[in-house]
Write a protein that binds this DNA or RNA. Structure first.
Lengths: 344, 344
DNA sequence: TTGTAGGCGTTATCAC
DNA sequence: GTGATAACGCCTACAA
């Protein structure tokens, strides 16, 4: 029942535990013959070293913690998979927390991760206190922030150039002749949501377009808020002729609402979404969207972390890596049609 | 740098480590006054117990392992989230492996999980050897299988009634008048793929419809195989007028292919998908699909595991829980139109 | 090349 | 109610 330990093996073989331990960790140091004998016995009785004991002794768990806001969101699924693929070969395992966009849940996750002595943490901040994070970093746990930045110091950060993303979206719609443009922005306590909105507004104002405040809806990055946002935008007296939506979940919700309202895309409304989720291409018309190399983001975060884990802990300056977004033009955007409504 | 330990606290307070430990784990047993003092000190120096040491001593890691075939698949995202939500309140954490539908990767994941002494494992089998799983179970690690079953003994299993699912899909299409019906089945080494196909074929044959072999395409549950499968089905001399597809990823691929071929749904082709992924409702027409209570599946698996973890290890008989699928009729299915092609 | 001894930080079992 | 002591299973000086 209780799995065999080094001591069991040692008795079996009339050797000391140290020799067996060495045979496993530094093969060169033990005589080939004994090594063979040990390996055979291990095979026979099915021994595998107790990782918990090893972690305690070496003060190193070979575990990295990941906190994402919503694992059912395609974006974070891809991120987790990419991180997993990047750290696996280095024998790290991954403990995952789904914070459900809730700062309290994220705080609890951090606490668990610290108690479990994880080697490092990759987080996509959902907001909330920075204090316990500062403590974690001060105590030597490297932290990488991904997709969003909390303002914490001494963390490496992997971001999308969100200002750029917002700008590209706006410029595309402007070029198509749209002037009354709406947006469903993300929650403004998150840096990525702020960036996307900021870039978007900046580009509009550069084109001398001023946005009526009611053309900005603030969602929470969840599907339902996209649905509500779209409903409200489309029930405006002066409806927008184009909308930019700041993430994929809200885009989905908006599409559902727009379908129910029998508004035709792109004839009545042009739409630019965010994140090139797989289903963007299944839509009819397929979705024009702001895309970014999602798996690269995850891989990059993993590599930054591995780097901090491997290298001697010199006080490296913290790095910020930004990935450039790209507009993928598909069928949901079209030149402005002049109608009674849109001319006003 | 090195986090404070019980011993540090003990010196600080002129107490023994035992007392402090007790104050944390069985508050009732220590004098309120000393307890206060301890709590204050803990607060002050920011102590948190070392979970690794605790795990070693208690031989219990409070960690559960989860192996899924593809975390970017909506279905498994929802499963992971549901499990996380169910075990979190019991202070378990979750280590996640993405096996990428690869039996070797799954085997490695199992090995890591065992070395890390996880308390239990929830797996969605991807095929491959059962032997190391038997060893794991024999050594006392409870295992739950989810969505697929490998034939392993002494595991609890949570499934969808796949035969039923296939049957419902077929019956729906038959009732709509379709006779030349195709399917994109999953890989037949997986029990769920087999069940879905079996139920489907059975219902057809019950209606005296025999399926030409070329109307069955075998995919691998990934998007691209759905794309290819649909392409092949639709390039058949005698095209099917309806298709049933055995999971959501392949359904997406198929839809992309069908769009490119300019085949109209449901006018030219009726489609029934599987898994009611969020995007099924975004499509135009929205997707008719076989749905099931996905989060319930995850929660159920978690509860079965918690049950085995909590209860004394009596030799409980292993349980199989099947959830009933449900047909959600939306716009991608329609009565058969009599055309030259479909009459032949 | 191998064995001995000590410790990683916690909890359980005894005494007191 | 509190303290001393001995594990939990492994790794690593150091000694042989």
């Amino acid at each position: 029942m209780r799995p065999p330990t080094l001591l069991d093996l040692a008795k079996e073989l009339n050797l000391s535990t140290s020799t067996i331990s060495r045979a496993l960790t530094r093969p060169g140091v033990v005589r080939p013959a004994t090594r063979e004998r040990i390996l055979a016995a291990i095979e026979k009785i099915g021994f595998s070293p107790n990782g918990v004991a090893r972690s305690l002794r070496k003060r190193e768990t070979k575990t990295i913690g990941i906190i994402v806001p919503d694992i059912t969101n395609w974006f974070f699924g891809v991120i987790v998979r990419a991180i997993s693929g990047a750290v696996g070969p280095h024998a790290y395992m991954m403990v995952v927390f789904d914070a459900n966009e809730d700062p309290e849940a994220e705080a609890k996750a951090l606490q668990s991760l610290r108690e479990r002595q994880v080697s490092g943490i990759i987080r996509c901040p959902v907001g909330g206190e920075n204090k316990s994070w500062e403590a974690a970093i001060a105590s030597g746990t490297p932290v990488i922030e991904l997709d969003r930045c909390s303002g914490l110091r001494n963390v490496d950060t992997v971001l999308i150039d969100d200002d750029q993303a917002g700008r590209i979206a706006a410029e595309c719609l402007i070029a198509l002749g749209h002037r009354r443009i709406g947006t469903i922005a993300g929650p403004q306590h998150l840096s990525n949501a702020r960036g996307r909105l900021r870039g978007f507004l900046k580009a509009l104002s550069k084109a001398s377009i001023t946005l009526a405040p009611e053309l900005i809806e603030y969602g929470d990055f969840r599907e339902s808020s996209g649905y509500i946002g779209a409903e409200r935008l489309m029930s405006l007296r002066a409806r927008p002729t184009a909308i930019f939506i700041a993430n994929s979940e809200m885009t989905g919700g908006a599409i559902a609402a727009i379908r129910e309202l029998k508004i035709r895309i792109p004839k009545d409304l042009s739409l630019i979404g965010f994140d090139d989720a797989r289903w963007a291409r299944y839509l009819d018309p397929p979705l024009t969207t702001i895309s970014h190399p999602t798996p690269e983001l995850g891989r990059c975060a993993a590599e930054l972390l591995l780097d901090r884990l491997t290298k001697v802990k010199s006080h490296r300056k913290s790095r910020v890596i930004k990935f450039e977004p790209e507009l993928i033009v598909r069928g949901s955007t079209a030149p402005l049609r002049i109608t009674k409504q849109s001319r006003r």
